[in-house]
Amino acid sequence: MNASDFSLLIKLLMAHMVSDYFLQFGSWVSDKGKKGIRSPKLYWHILITFLTAWLFSGHFLAALFIGFTHYLIDLGKIYIKYNRFVLFIADQTLHTLILVLTWLFLIDGWHTFFENTVSLFQNPKTWLFCFAYGLITFPMSVVIEIFVYRWRSEITEKKQESLKQAGQWIGILERILVLTFILMGQYSAMGFLIATKAILRFKDTEIKQMEYVLIGTLMSLTPTILLGILTDFLLRVL
């Protein structure tokens, strides 16, 4: 793969970003949701998708294919009644997959792509990355939940408003960032993240609440930091 081939992929992704985010307005999305296949805004959006893909890539037939598949995916998203977040992820994943497949067809890069993919998944470093990042998400959340459960009753005597599962997702994203910073050698950025969280979270005057948050934070960060150091060491020796 040369620089020109890679540039074409970036152009296709840029075209998608422009048509799906910059040139699609909230009123259009609302109109599509209400009128479905009869919405004129749906067809304006598909026309813009086609034109931007053609303008950025310079390939008419490829842009036509992208526009048609974009129409089918958007239509499916309109009529499938499911969790909004899941639908958004599925929608964008399918659009991106179509763009990558179109790109591979244009550059005739199927052989190289599959060869590199097989090589990637035969590399032990790939599996080490997958294991490390997988471990710090939901498995570690379960361990922390079990560990801090003994103190939960002491801080839930007073009813406190809290976003559903917000703490879990904050912890997962925090651990992903910490692990990434360690593997990149950006320890100062990791320190800034921890300090920022401390400022935001320790405004509560309740001692028990502060201690509970501190225990949860340390239970989250300590194994992540140790795992990051171990992963970084193994990556160097493999």
Rank of each mutant, 00 (worst) to 15 (best):
S7M: 03
D91S: 09
Q168T: 04
S162P: 03
W127I: 03
N2K: 07
G76M: 13
I78F: 07
A166I: 03
T205C: 10
L235M: 11
W127K: 07
T112F: 02
E115T: 07
I98C: 12
Y21T: 11
I176Y: 12
T222N: 13
Y43R: 01
L183Y: 06
I215N: 10
S4L: 02
I207A: 14
L214S: 14
L64W: 13
S162R: 05
Y149N: 11
E154C: 00
V148G: 01
I37T: 09
F129S: 05
M1Q: 09
V118N: 08
W127G: 10
I144L: 12
V18Q: 04
T126V: 11
E154V: 09
Q186A: 15
W169V: 01
N116V: 01
V86I: 12
K164A: 02
G167H: 01
S27A: 15
T52V: 14
I182T: 07
W103K: 03
F25V: 02
A166T: 00
H70D: 04
T52G: 03
G167N: 01
F60C: 13
F129A: 06
I170S: 05
L87Q: 12
F131R: 03
D5T: 04
L230E: 13
L104D: 07
K34A: 13
L234S: 14
F147T: 14
V18S: 08
Y212F: 15
V178Q: 00
Q160F: 05
Y133V: 03
R38D: 08
Q168H: 03
W103R: 01
W54T: 08
T217Y: 07
S4K: 10
Q24M: 11
L13C: 06
F85R: 09
S4Y: 09
K158N: 12
L235C: 05
F121R: 02
I215W: 14
D204M: 12
M1G: 01
E115C: 06
P139Q: 07
Y82D: 04
T52Q: 04
L238Y: 15
A90P: 04
E174L: 05
Y133Q: 11
S39F: 08
L104M: 00
L101F: 03
G26E: 12
C130W: 03
S162N: 00
I215S: 11
T93K: 00
V148N: 08
F56S: 09
F233Y: 15
L193R: 05
F56Q: 09
T93F: 10
W103E: 00
Q168P: 04
L104I: 10
E206T: 06
V86H: 06
L200F: 10
E211N: 14
A132I: 01
I199V: 15
T222F: 15
I136Q: 07
P124R: 09
W127L: 11
T69P: 10
F6L: 12
Q92L: 01
L120H: 00
K77L: 06
W103T: 04
G167V: 06
V100A: 04
G67S: 11
T93G: 02
I155N: 12
R152V: 13
I199L: 15
M190F: 05
F138S: 13
L221Y: 13
C130P: 02
S162A: 12
A63Q: 01
N83A: 11
I78D: 06
L104E: 00
